[in-house]
Design a protein around this nucleic acid. Structure first.
Lengths: 342, 342
DNA sequence: AGATCCATTGATTGCGCAATCATGATCTCG
DNA sequence: CGAGATCATGATTGCGCAATCAATGGATCT
């Protein structure tokens, strides 16, 4: 850009140089006073602080990031914001990175791997020190891009065998199998799996496959899953309950892909006078708070969502700081929470 | 930075220059082909596209932002991510800005105005074209900073009389008053307001004040609100119900500051056999999906959270594009949803 | 006393891109 | 048919900062 640029930030937005002049030091000293205060004497630090306050100086992070080839933003790419699971995970990430002075850049793929690639490519252009992405399934070009990139990447939510760099999550197949075994142990034969968009939400699909495989291993009856091609919601869970009971023969238990659906089913059962678990047992997945408050209490699998976010963020920050590497894969596990609904 | 910098993005990360050399054009033509394709002939556009693909070029957005003094990120500052209200609002914002090719930079103040100032100052350093912040209450220095900044700012959630630039939300005092009038009209005298941290969540405080003033205007009995100094949750709503009924005399109706609490109260009432609304009526605020699914249905005030996010984002983008200004303040209103719990 | 060190501070340079201005090529129209 | 207009492309420059290297001064040691 030549002599005169368009509108810079406000008229006369102060720069390092102005602060330096005011404080009677060189610009680089101001830079150090702000970014690495330990390197500067207390006297100058104070003078700089004062000049900063007087001028209302706001650091230009864009320039800093360009000069150092690294910014203080952490991109987080998730498939959805309507799902409480991702929101809570983001919350865990946010807590940790915010405390370390990083900012969170958010991308929503809406379960579209093309869009995922787009976000990741865009985000790399911000020179972030690392990146967090939900899932271990990506397009080959996305994988290649991240591998070539060479900075830390954490894939969260499910554990996968072929992660790009670091990986924090749980085995959804194992969780599905655990629920199958629980329901069978309780004497509920003929179990129906019910969920939404299992192709997009492939982790729900993994839960189904783990569940189905466990049924097969136990020699139990298997059913085709009941699915809907709209997002999960409590109201839909209730509708799916009604639909399931109209099947011939009706299932004796329903394993919902998530607690939103399952809680809706419990509320609907209560309203319609459907006996749970006597007529039909109901189970969910996630361990939302509300699952323990409905009547009967919902049997579910608690997934440590906040922990996934926190641990993922901590591993990323550790790798950025080039700390002790630690394990590259963390399986945070899950917990079967048995309540009255089964 | 002199000759050799530290680790730039990967070894041999391509830059505009490399792409330009490969495509046999000047760097600026590549820049235009990518950012303003209409300005470049189809022939060159194709050659550039091909060179970009072959080199795996990823635009450096930091450099672009520095050169043009404007980035494509929209900072959003909210007080909490544990509250579904802010999450849904963010979702609305995200939808809109994402479609327009902007990225969302997220800051969480945890209801702390010092922290709010910190985030906003930091975010201005990213040269964003505009900014969205929840609330119209800020520290004077924050106000001053944003006013001096001179780019579009949207304050969301509540409508306020003294907004910095643009403002989208609803009147929480009017909502509280509407609920007071509804409860009185239903014959529920002696109403208790129950909420958490009304000083921090000052919008809940505004609902209380509107409610209390309406009671006074109607000559109804007024009570000191029941409060707790922990975050809202359904379980807590149940506990507060029990606590409220132990008061002497017990209230005949409870207006909860939000649906999380109120839904928890309904579920607890059901479990403990407390008759709603006969022994005590229950009302909430927000209009969460689940409020319509519990038994009895929860009377609540639906706030258009997604719409607040969308409209806020649209107004911001409009101002950034210097479109028709439109009104600087939008009151999205609210809807009283009457169900069985009152 | 001279040598050596560490702790502070400063001077120079370039990160990668887009804004501006300049230029040549093509078009329009009396 | 030529002057001006329009379009596509290129050359130059600097955005604001931090990395590198250099210089200074005082403390410590032999």
């Amino acid at each position: 850009m030549p002599a005169t640029s368009g509108q810079r930030d406000g008229p006369g937005a102060a720069t390092l140089k102005h602060v330096a002049a005011r404080a009677g030091v060189s610009p680089i000293t101001v830079s150090r006073a702000l970014n690495k205060p330990a390197m500067v004497s207390a006297d100058l630090r104070d003078r700089v602080r004062r000049a900063v306050d007087e001028l209302g100086y706001v650091q230009n992070r864009v320039a800093g990031a360009l000069a150092s080839a690294e910014s203080r933003v952490i991109p987080v790419v998730v498939p959805s914001l309507s799902n409480a699971v991702f929101v809570e995970t983001i919350q865990g990430i946010q807590e940790v990175v915010q405390r370390a002075g990083f900012q969170l850049l958010l991308g929503n793929t809406e379960y579209d791997l093309d869009r995922e690639h787009g976000w990741i490519a865009t985000f790399l252009g911000w020179s972030p020190p690392g990146l967090i992405v939900a899932g271990t399934r990506h397009q080959p070009r996305t994988r290649a891009l991240l591998e070539r990139w060479g900075r830390p990447v954490v894939e969260i939510m499910e554990v996968g065998s072929r992660s790009i760099d670091m990986n924090v999550g749980l085995s959804h197949a194992a969780a599905g199998a655990a629920m199958a075994r629980h329901l069978l142990a309780r004497g509920h034969a003929d179990i129906l799996f019910a969920g939404c968009r299992l192709d997009q939400d492939y982790r729900a699909g993994q839960r189904f496959r783990g569940f189905d495989r466990a049924l097969a291993e136990c020699g139990a009856a298997r059913r085709r899953p009941l699915t809907r091609d709209v997002p999960s919601s409590p109201a839909l869970g209730g509708d799916m309950l009604v639909a399931a009971l109209r099947l011939d023969p009706p299932p004796r238990a329903i394993f919902y892909a998530n607690d939103d659906l399952a809680v809706g089913a419990i509320l609907r059962a209560q309203r319609d006078g459907i006996a749970v678990p006597d007529r039909v047992a109901i189970a969910g997945f996630n361990g939302l708070d509300i699952s323990g408050l409905v009547t009967p209490g919902l049997t579910t699998i608690a997934s440590p969502r906040l922990a996934i976010g926190r641990i993922g963020a901590e591993k990323l920050l550790g790798a950025i700081a080039r700390d002790t590497p630690g394990p590259r894969r963390v399986d945070v596990g899950f917990e079967l929470v048995v309540r009255g609904s089964t």
